[in-house]
Write a protein that binds this DNA or RNA. Structure first.
Lengths: 121, 121
DNA sequence: CTGCATCCAAAATGATACTG
DNA sequence: CAGTATCATTTTGGATGCAG
């Protein structure tokens, strides 16, 4: 399927992944399976409760993750990747791979630029 | 290569693509090859000069596109995808495909939910 | 334990005028 | 033609307190 600018759906996919914590949240759920809210919070250092809730809601809205509430006290809520959500895994892997290589690419590029600058001195 | 949360590079790739206009700009350059600033501006309806400049600078910074200035009056500046930048194409295609399917998925989901709601009446 | 509400700061985007 | 500069607006993220 060729992309035409008039009917580009890249942004639709991008929108799902964009958010400071979404990739990490998805990764933890993919790697560790079902997790409670508090487990996720511990798994993603630095995230606030508000942001975790927000990002989980976003992902739930798009049917990427599932939220299961146990009606008990104290509350218990479990999150997991949906079957459909797993279809994102290849893209996440591709981006991780590309990103890993990109870091190398940038380092190489900077090296060359530095050599160039030295020659100018 | 398996992604570990501690060494996730998805955000590095994501950062390149994120920006309201970047996917469209990349698509136009991939599809039409080298383009002048004004051609790009026409190709991306609604974008302002400022945003076009910003996003082009971002992409150039990451070595995804190349900027060639012709020192003449009036000025002429051409943009094109770098060889390295083309390595993003598979990811863009995958996201476009996923996004296209996601739109269908959401429509199906809404249909089901509506049926469910009708039953509740 | 889970999560909502409020208030605030920072970043991204947009409108507009100006320049070589 | 291809920008830059400035200011306004919108969006996103963060801190904190409260509640079932």
């Amino acid at each position: 399927m060729k992309i035409e600018p008039e009917s580009c759906r890249v942004d639709d996919a991008l929108g799902i992944l964009v958010g400071k914590w979404k990739p990490l949240i998805l990764l933890h759920l993919l790697k560790n399976g079902t997790q409670r809210f508090s487990e996720l919070k511990r798994s993603v250092p630095g995230i606030t409760q508000k942001m975790l809730t927000n990002q989980l809601r976003d992902l739930e809205e798009e049917d990427i993750i599932e939220r299961k509430v146990y009606p008990q006290v104290p509350p218990k809520v479990e999150y997991s990747i949906t079957e459909y959500g797993r279809s994102l895994e290849p893209i996440l892997n591709a981006m991780h791979e590309w990103g890993t290589n990109h870091i190398i690419h940038k380092r190489e590029k900077m090296k060359k630029e530095n050599v160039g600058n030295e020659r100018k001195l």
